[in-house]
């Protein structure tokens, strides 16, 4: 086996281990988010507080759109399209920041406060923990963007991009369940 082929085989082996490690991390994170999800049903039951539906739908759409651009960035670097890769990363980060503004700047300034009993505790616990992950995801994206700008990734080697993309989509998957649990399920209690 030539040196190049051997190096690529090593890289692929390492890639499989990295990927498995990342998914194990996601499983551990699922317990955290799962606990918050279950606490919503335990404490709220078949009720929910009155929340701004337009805001909920808007921030959900923003996060879904950000996942699209993150996927576009990953596909771009996998197919040697550096300009689309860098632009898509920046758009994803911007959408992530918009999502944070929607949650922290608008939802958290609504009529429910963290000390308002079960409604406040669950709402702020779930959105707060999720927002923290969005914030870390945005930082991760900006680090990958900076590395990408310096030419650290190629179509053959871009584990950093793949890990960042999978992490971002994971945060999106969490919101896929949190959004209906907070905004849509149960009867509104005024």
């Amino acid at each position: 086996m030539s040196t190049i082929a051997s190096t690529m085989a090593d890289y692929r082996h390492q890639l499989r281990n990295n990927r498995l490690g990342l998914w194990l991390f996601f499983i551990s994170e699922a317990f955290l988010f799962g606990g918050l999800f279950v606490s919503r049903f335990y404490l709220w039951g078949n009720t929910r507080p009155e929340l701004d539906q337009t805001l909920g739908l808007t921030i959900t759409s923003i996060l879904l759109l950000s996942s699209f651009f993150m996927n576009r960035a990953e596909m771009a670097i996998a197919h040697d399209d550096r300009r689309t890769f860098l632009n898509s990363l920046l758009i994803t980060a911007a959408l992530g920041i918009l999502f944070l503004i929607g949650v922290v700047g608008f939802e958290w300034r609504g009529h429910i406060r963290p000390w308002d009993g079960a409604f406040g505790a669950v709402l702020f616990g779930m959105t707060g923990m999720h927002a923290l992950h969005v914030l870390s995801g945005v930082i991760f994206i900006l680090i990958v963007w900076n590395n990408g700008r310096k030419g650290h990734y190629s179509s053959e080697r871009h584990w950093g991009v793949e890990a960042c993309a999978i992490y971002w989509h994971y945060v999106d998957v969490i919101w896929v369940f949190f959004y209906p649990a907070l905004y849509l399920m149960g009867t509104v209690v005024r």
């Binding site: 692929r12 082996h13 890639l15 499989r16 990927r19 498995l20 998914w23 996942s67 993150m70 996927n71 996998a78 179509s155 053959e156 871009h158 584990w159 793949e162 993309a165 999978i166 989509h169 994971y170 999106d172 998957v173 896929v176 369940f177 209906p180």
Partner: peptide
């Protein structure tokens, strides 16, 4: 929600690569 999560896991997170023998991207 499960359908949406399934779409993201399959097409955006490429979960099937976990048990792929090729080991590439």
């Amino acid at each position: 929600g499960l359908f949406k999560a399934g779409l993201i896991l399959q097409y955006y997170m490429h979960i099937s690569l976990l048990w792929s023998d090729e080991g590439g991207h």
